[in-house]
Design a protein around this nucleic acid. Structure first.
Lengths: 193, 193
DNA sequence: GTGTCAACTTTACACGCTGTCAAGTTGATC
DNA sequence: GATCAACTTGACAGCGTGTAAAGTTGACAC
């Protein structure tokens, strides 16, 4: 408690997080600087470019949210319940990362580093879905004729930031309705009835 | 047959269409001009800006593909079959519009006109889904507890350009597998079993 | 007190892309 | 031979990112 203010780097991360959450038009570096209360150039003292700032924000969000704790229930479950738990956990996590995610997606076209960063995040989510599908398959509940890899593809495509944006942000669905619907949909998509 | 070449406007439209289909990085105005074989400035003699060019390309694609004929089978069907037919028709149309769609989506953040244009296209698709859901509801097959508007939201979010890009473009699904999966998924999502 | 150092500010500028402007060139038509 | 539309060439403003350089400030060492 020797210092009241968190260090500048942390202030940048939280301010960027918040500004990306709130506004949909892509926050410029100058907008972020203004939000932090520093000059635009000071941003470049802490992060070499926009892409790395965004990546650092995602890591910061994971840290603050204790991503491991969020996923614990999913890892504890088995069979279809494991799929349910993972879909619910990821669905409920999307609101936290949605802002940065959209910024990274938008940057993807022009910035190779942003593309790699976002691909890395997707790979992590995919990894979770792979474990969930494995659990479903182990319990014999995987839909016949559906290869595990295909099931994972489908789940990643369905329970995505894009779907969340459409339903929650644009169509005004409450978060809990979104999560419940995704859980049902995911089960229907890859499990036997 | 007085002239062998189509007029410049048409050549711009088809060239833009093709270049957007092939490459994923956003084609610049100079890239398009080069593909047409004219100067960058000549583009601005035909279209006031990038957004209106893209919009014109979507209209051109609709014309070339005779969108009405594609939707005829869907309009002829009733009940759940109508939903199936519409989902299949839209799924099979996505590959045609996907290039321009992605360009418009990318432009959305920075260009209000592009945002409106893309919203208009989505509204047209949504209108089709509304009719399909109505048909399902009329036949008493709409999932209990699911409001028609919610069903439409869900279908729009599921059978989307974004989902297609993920599964077909990134995961390498064959188009027919995508379409079949979307038909099944859509039915599971909004119909009683 | 003076010096030093890190963090930050201010100002300026290069680059890439979009869109605008103005002055040619060309080729068909009257 | 004049005219006109379509197109070219070249130049430039605006905007956002990222780089560069010189100046300010405050803490800490000695």
């Amino acid at each position: 408690m020797s210092s009241d203010l968190p260090d500048t780097r942390t202030r940048i991360l939280t301010a960027t997080w918040k500004i990306l959450e709130s506004r949909e038009n892509p926050a410029r570096m100058s907008d972020i600087a203004k939000a932090v209360g520093i000059s635009r150039q000071a941003l470049y003292l802490h992060f070499p470019n926009r892409a790395e700032l965004l990546v650092a924000v995602t890591r910061h969000i994971d840290e603050v949210n204790d991503i491991d704790a969020r996923l614990a229930p999913s890892r504890a479950a088995t069979g279809v319940a494991r799929l349910d738990a993972y879909v619910a956990a990821w669905s409920d996590y999307i609101p936290e990362v949605q802002g940065v995610a959209r910024a990274l997606i938008a940057l993807q076209d022009r910035d190779a580093e942003a593309a790699r960063a976002w691909a890395g995040r997707l790979a992590a989510v995919r990894h979770g879905f792979e474990a969930a599908v494995q659990a479903v398959d182990d319990s014999g509940a995987l839909r016949p004729g559906l290869a595990p890899a295909q099931a994972v593809d489908l789940l990643c495509a369905l329970v995505s930031v894009e779907t969340w944006t459409r339903l929650v942000q644009e169509d005004g669905w409450p978060q809990d309705v979104f999560t419940a619907t995704m859980v049902r949909l995911a089960r229907n998509a890859v499990c036997t009835r």
